[in-house]
Amino acid sequence: MSTRVASIAPVTVHRLMIVDDSNVIRRRIERAHDLPFVEFVGSARNGREALELHARTHPTIVTMDLTMPEMDGNECVEQLVRRDPDIRILVISALADKSTAIDALERGASGFLCKPFTDRQLNDALRKLIEY
């Protein structure tokens, strides 16, 4: 009698870091994301904290605000991409003009979501980021 063992495809777990100077937004993103295989590793209030958190937790996906004190999102995107070219960054900003989005993508972001956003828009954007 033979035993059949089903083969299971390896699962990639994505490690999520949230960067925003607003506590309300950080907590909202943490609550609202509902994608499978996404593990929340921590949040940061500005670019400088994000770089420190990145060094400790090695996130693979990031949500990034732009207008923040100390170090803004654009500079942080550049530094994160320089450290880890495979990192995927979703910029989430109230700056709603097209050139801001293009600028973020040129600096290395993988996606752009405009504030305000619904939970569904957030999860759609995160899904695209993972499939990017």
């Binding site: 607003s22 309300v24 207008t67 109230a94 709603a96 801001t100 504030k115």
Partner: peptide
């Protein structure tokens, strides 16, 4: 305090759609 700041930030940031970058 955080929420009122975020709301003001969103109103002003969204205005860039009309005022430009």
């Amino acid at each position: 305090c955080d929420l009122v700041g975020e709301i003001a930030n969103t109103f002003a940031g969204n205005a860039r759609r009309g005022f430009g970058h």
